[in-house]
Design a protein around this nucleic acid. Structure first.
Length: 474
RNA sequence: CGGGGCGUGGCGCAGUCCGGUAGCGCGCAGCGUUUGGGACGCUGAGGCCGGAGGUUCGAAUCCUCUCGCCCCGACCA
């Protein structure tokens, strides 16, 4: 049997594409740079949606939906915004066979159209804060695409809020970044570094941008979720104003924050191995798969009786799938490993005879024997163990691939090893641009966790205590 | 936008240099044997060779034009 998944060490990029294909996550669409998310991949997205949506609701947000078509003139109202997005806009110029009066932009993000509506909804300080989230698709005409990581169209959620004060907006910005951080950590078992973006890297139209940055298996960083403090930039452009308690007209203070199907790419690239996908149990569409093993009809009856009993005992406590297809066991083992199912339970004649089941863990490949009657009581702990195992492996990887540098020579050396490079930083945007030109690396963020150990900037030599994380990025 | 690769049954490819009845593996369907780490046998279905022109008695193959996709690099969630 030919190997269907290229080993990571041979060609990491090819490995990534092989896993997506073999695990049935996605297919290429007929148009360059587009992707079809297949049911198994979409099920992961649904898990992500469910988890995040609950967290948004718990923090007081409501879902709504805004149109995909945005008048071109809206984009042009905020200078930084249009400059940032102009190169990657898809624009509709014909509708119903007629050239349109005004071209329509297919939303690359919805700040403008949402402000247009907010400006009509918000009159008074009593209307604030306004906390809205939208689940939708957006389009950015990228040149270089990769499934999940960068496609012309992708799915995401975008939160948009309006507040009475700058302080409230800043609190909201950081609150939602923390939602992303804890989601990545607790649900996806993806370790991330939370921090602030530099001026150069921030969102077009924001006062400040914050990010969670993951470090993926090939040593490159991935911006996995972002939260922006928009200040009053869009409020001024769209006259989004309210009357305060002194009957004075004020511009609102705003935030926006987003997490996309790119996050599925982060999961694949954080946890995957040469056998395929490895999914964190909390996000896995199928947490446990049962593979019955038998030789003949009589054996099958005995095994399936045990399977049915176990299925009934587990009930709805886990997302369970029984693979009763007419295929050989080895085939099924391999297939479910490719799909990254956290736990596989094998039940064969020997297990039935001894009243046990064989449990295989996807995080470490181990196989153990568990009395069948004990399994329902232990399944939760087993899933937690896989979740923890994946997180431990991922965070050890980040630790092993984060290096400090204190001058350009050690910076170059650290970058060559891949991963995050921690430096003291006092440079400006021009310095950052020069470093990107020379080394292909950018500042991923200025981490919130700052050790407060003053020293010299590795690049400019100026005194500073600011730590920056550099990396090559997707 | 630069560099490279590729378009031939559902998928992966050979055939193209050197024109002559379109082939292989996987997958798929049926039957049988199998089943504790990607099984095997037999039978079968399925392709106007990306598209358009041209050369030729004859084009997957040669010529011209064109469309598309993938990978790598610069820009980007």
């Amino acid at each position: 049997m030919a190997e269907r998944i290229t080993p990571r060490s041979t060609d990491h990029s090819q490995w990534y594409l092989d896993v997506i294909r073999e695990a049935g996550l996605a297919d290429y669409g007929p148009v360059r740079g587009t992707m079809v998310i297949r049911p198994y991949g979409y099920a992961i997205w649904e898990r992500i949606q469910q988890g995040l949506d609950g967290m948004f609701k718990a923090t007081g947000h409501q879902n709504a939906y805004f149109p995909m078509f945005i008048p071109m003139s809206f984009l042009e109202k905020e200078k930084q915004h249009v400059e940032g997005f102009a190169p990657e806009l898809a624009v509709v110029t014909i509708g119903g066979g007629k050239t349109l009066e005004e071209p329509l932009v297919v939303r690359p993000t919805s700040e403008t159209i949402i402000n247009h509506m907010f400006s009509t909804w918000i009159q008074s300080y009593r209307d604030l804060p306004l906390l809205i989230n939208q689940w939708c698709n957006v389009v950015r005409w990228e040149l270089r695409t990769r499934p999940f990581l960068r496609t012309l169209e992708f799915l995401w959620q975008e939160g948009h809020t309006a507040h009475a004060t700058a302080e409230e907006a800043q609190e909201e910005t950081l609150r939602m970044l923390e939602v992303y951080r804890s989601f990545a950590h607790d649900e996806a078992a993806v370790p991330v570094v939370a921090g602030r973006k530099t001026e150069r890297e921030k969102f077009a139209g924001a006062d400040a941008s914050y990010t969670i940055e993951a470090l993926l298996g090939d040593g490159k960083a991935l911006q996995s979720g972002t939260s922006h403090n928009l200040g009053q930039n869009f409020a001024r452009a769209f006259h989004t104003q309210y009357l305060d308690t002194n009957n004075t007209l004020q511009h609102v203070w705003q935030t926006s924050w987003g997490l996309s199907t790119r996050f599925i790419g982060a999961i694949i690239l954080t946890h995957g191995d040469d056998s395929g996908l490895r999914l964190p149990p909390r996000l896995a569409p199928i947490q446990v798969v049962i593979v019955p093993i038998y030789r003949d009809d009589a054996g099958k009856a005995a095994v399936m009786a045990a399977v049915d009993e176990l299925r009934a005992a587990l009930g709805t406590s886990v997302r369970l799938h029984v693979d009763d297809r007419d295929e050989r066991p080895g085939f099924k083992f391999t297939e479910w490993e490719i799909k990254g199912v956290p736990l596989r339970i094998e039940i064969g004649p020997r297990d039935v005879e001894q009243g046990v089941v064989t449990v295989a863990r996807r995080d470490d490949g181990s196989k153990t024997t568990v009395p069948r009657a004990d399994l329902p009581g232990r399944i939760g702990a087993l899933l937690d163990a896989v979740q923890d195992g994946l997180y431990a492996q991922a965070s050890a990887f980040v630790a092993d691939n984060t290096h400090a540098a204190d001058d350009e020579a050690s910076f170059t050396a650290a970058l060559a090893r891949g991963g995050f490079v921690r430096v003291l930083w006092a440079g400006g945007s021009e310095d950052e641009a020069a470093i990107q030109e020379a080394h292909g690396a950018t500042i991923r963020c200025l981490p919130f966790e700052q050790p407060d150990a003053p020293g010299k900037c590795f690049y400019t030599g100026k005194e500073t205590s600011t730590v920056a994380l550099f990396a090559r990025a997707y």
